[in-house]
């Protein structure tokens, strides 16, 4: 076990625990946008920064990636930390003026939009946190989406923005997206995502449309469970 301090509170945690988890399991809240329990971490959004003091040196670190250390003193909301968080939120507000998630978070932390930043109109609600890419790669295992370009022009999408042949329409990307940027439209029989329309399968028992056919085929192929058994929705199984 490692002993350390977060916001004045003495804390013990197992070696290898990230500061974010250690704080949260002790009732200390650190705001995040890109850290999701289902996917690996990138440290891209920078909202979860905290100050870590080791001896005389104090530095800003990313709590979602920083493993706890013996004797370290963490402060999660001092002025230096808030200065970074404020800037990050103001930058995200200007990038995604439509995002209610970012607006709510800004309100919660008492951050106002910076009038000197002209709001963008072309970035949608995407903060480039890459949770969607990671869930598609690490959990689903198809890697249908990825980045194009770099810097401010960086964007999420299918390769060359063409219809993806490997996308199974599972919607995990839309589900994990913290800001609701990824558009997915599901009617009874169809689901539209990333420009493709997927045919939905109805449950053999209750008749409810419950999953895209492509997704069921993919699961069957990957797990060896015959399609017949997958034709029943989770409620009726």
């Amino acid at each position: 076990m490692v002993n350390f301090i977060i916001d004045g509170k003495k804390i013990k945690a197992e070696k290898g625990t990230m500061v974010l988890e250690a704080a949260r399991s002790n009732g200390i809240d650190i705001p995040t946008l890109c850290a999701h329990e289902s996917v690996s971490r990138s440290g891209a959004c920078r909202l979860c920064v905290v100050e870590a003091k080791k001896g005389k040196r104090a530095k800003i670190v990313t709590s979602c990636l920083y493993p706890v250390e013996e004797g370290i003193i963490i402060e999660t909301n001092n002025e230096r930390v808030m200065n970074v968080r404020r800037l990050v939120l103001q930058l995200l507000l200007a990038r995604c003026p439509e995002s209610d998630v970012i607006q709510d978070l800004a309100k919660q932390l008492g951050v106002d939009p910076q009038p000197r930043f002209t709001p963008d109109g072309d970035k949608g609600k995407c903060i480039l946190c890459r949770s969607c890419i990671r869930v598609c790669e690490e959990v689903v295992g198809v890697s249908a989406i990825g980045f194009s370009c770099r810097g401010a022009d960086k964007a999420i999408g299918t390769p060359f923005s063409e219809d993806s042949a490997v996308c199974i329409g599972c919607g995990a990307c839309a589900f994990i997206c913290p800001t609701g940027h990824i558009e997915m439209e599901t009617t009874e029989e169809t689901r539209k995502i990333w420009g493709r329309t997927f045919k939905m399968k109805s449950c053999a028992v209750c008749g409810r449309y419950f999953a895209p056919e492509d997704q069921l085929k993919y699961i069957s192929k990957k797990t060896g469970v015959p399609m017949k058994e997958l034709a029943v929705c989770t409620n009726c199984r």
């Binding site: 990138s42 920078r46 930058l91 200007a94 930043f117 401010a152």
Partner: peptide
Amino acid sequence: LVSESCGKCTPCREGVRRMNDI
């Protein structure tokens, strides 16, 4: 630096571009 930022993290990708605007 704006044109060379990889675009991964918010302060560099967004912040440096806003500095550039100013």
